[in-house]
Design a protein around this nucleic acid. Structure first.
Lengths: 144, 144
DNA sequence: TCAAATTAAGTTGCGTACAACTTAATTTGT
DNA sequence: ACAAATTAAGTTGTACGCAACTTAATTTGA
């Protein structure tokens, strides 16, 4: 009767699918900037801060560990999106800062959120509501 | 003032984060069954069907292409979770069917959705509402 | 003070995702 | 009937995520 294992019913499959669909819509827009989605997240984090940020801080902001970030940042440095340098104060940590190119593409990136909002087809209040619900859910899941 | 590029505001970052958080909660439970999350999705699809399913059909159900599915199914066959065989009627297509082991672990898997629902900490009506909203969003995004 | 513990970043290995491509089988349109 | 188009899987190459591990620097505590 009520089979709990049905694919269509599962919240996490919805999240998985929506996440992939989002990614597919972002990909062509980001490609124009020479970015993947995780690289875009790094750029968002850097654009948001006036100063350089450590790899550890980036990891906290994006919830990614060094196993993901180290090669990702290395690729981004090779594309001249950012610089990396050992901290003078603590030789263990690495400072990540925007390159000129990295700063320049910000203006193009500013157009992206509005385009994506339009593609969701959601009225603003529903968009905000959904955002809030997901934020609550994230908090609960992180506590588990 | 209202910077549209702020990480915290973006719906897609929420989806990205929640999706990862979900995955982390699933991982230890699925590890007991010897499954990854995408492998679990394949098993859900197979458990749901009385007969064998083609790779193409699996791809439609899970929204994955053969570039992802072929190696994934090959790994699952090696773990004796399922069988693969060329269709007699159309030699291009491959039939995927459950092995005895694949059928057996279903009973253990049945406990997972309830555990995950508990971990969301959401009341049932909110859980269903969120599920619906994401389903709507998926439809809109797929149309774009 | 100085060995032990902790911390930050990086490396290795595995499993997705997906674009772009190849191969083989089937369908098609004349 | 049969060449051209289409279709289903699979392969190759790139980029995440993350577990487990290594290395080097800093902190700690007896």
């Amino acid at each position: 009767m009520s089979d709990t294992l049905q694919l269509e019913k599962q919240l996490c499959f919805r999240l998985y699918s929506v996440n992939k669909a989002m990614n597919r819509l972002y990909a062509p827009m980001l490609k124009e900037l020479g970015l993947t989605y995780p690289q875009y997240l790094v750029m968002l984090a850097l654009w948001d801060k006036p100063k350089a940020v450590t790899v550890k801080q980036l990891g906290e902001m994006l919830d990614l560990d060094s196993g993901t970030l180290s090669p990702l940042l290395k690729r981004m440095e090779k594309q001249a999106l950012l610089h990396r340098s050992r901290s003078e104060f603590d030789e263990r940590s690495v400072q990540v800062s925007l390159s000129a190119h990295g700063k320049n593409i910000r203006s193009k990136a500013k157009l992206i959120p509005a385009k994506m909002f339009a593609k969701t087809g959601l009225p603003l209040d529903e968009f905000l509501m959904l955002n809030n619900k997901l934020d609550q859910l994230l908090t609960r899941l992180s506590e588990s």
